[in-house]
Amino acid sequence: MRAIAVLGVLLIATSCAAEPAPRAPELPPLPAGARPFELFRRADLTLVDQADRALFLECLADNGYPQERALGNESVEAVTGLSRPPISPRTEAEARKYGFGTALPAEPATIDRKDPAFFAVADRCETTAREALGVPIEVAGLRDRYAQLGNALVQDRARKVEAILVAYGKKLVACLAGRGHRLQAGATFSARGDLKQFGITTGSHAPAKPTPVRRPAGLPADVPYKPAVPPREYRPSKAEAAFAVSFVRCGQQTGLFAAIDRDGLAIEQQIVERHVSEFSGLNPQIEALAAKSSEVLRGR
């Protein structure tokens, strides 16, 4: 009896010892030379979104609303903030042409539905579309969570770069003042503020020139239709462009740009390490969903 008990204890001890300890999440591997933010599978998220929309539009068409699909299903880049530098302008040419602004992307044509019957169908079609990609609630949740991870990277980087901007604030303000751009009376430099603190009125975007296109066939006359609008350039004001050139020169002269460039990779690495559990858990899922999405889009 005693021997059996000892054996039992030994067996339990052995089985416990053999059980592997839970592993801490690890960052997925990166190809040599890649930046840490390339861990974010932006192209995969874009592909998932395009397949989801293709299936959604197909379902709308099958349920009495073919006009949305007739407008096409162009790929819309996900989390575009990640494709932009954290701070701009960085060159005098950019400064003269764009100031501190960016172009507005093209706007697709839009059918402006207000009919509750349409939205009831749209609700059902969201689920139908996602059934073709997996379990609808999981597909929807993954897409949202991954987009939130991308936004978190943009925001985390912005806060770090702002901290550098603040650290160089005094030098920057002195340099700008030397070039004739003084802070407004009583103002202190704010890295989160706008150009008004230097008395600069910004420019505006070129006016929208909608593409002349016919309304989709069969669209009821009382449903508003907004044609596509091509990308619109940003036109800085004269004062903004001059200020932007000074900003570039001062960014170079004070060492601000060099500091941002020097710390860039380390900042990205710190940020991805902060999100290790998301990358570790979500990357394999978004890759699998992107593969499925690619199949869905093939032949469509």
């Binding site: 929309r53 996900a78 701070i87 943009v154 912005a158 704010s190 706008d194």
Partner: peptide, 16 residues
Amino acid sequence: GDWVNDSWQFPSRSTT
């Protein structure tokens, strides 16, 4: 702010 790129982009047909 005008200095730093800190945009947020939210996908369509989001459920959360």
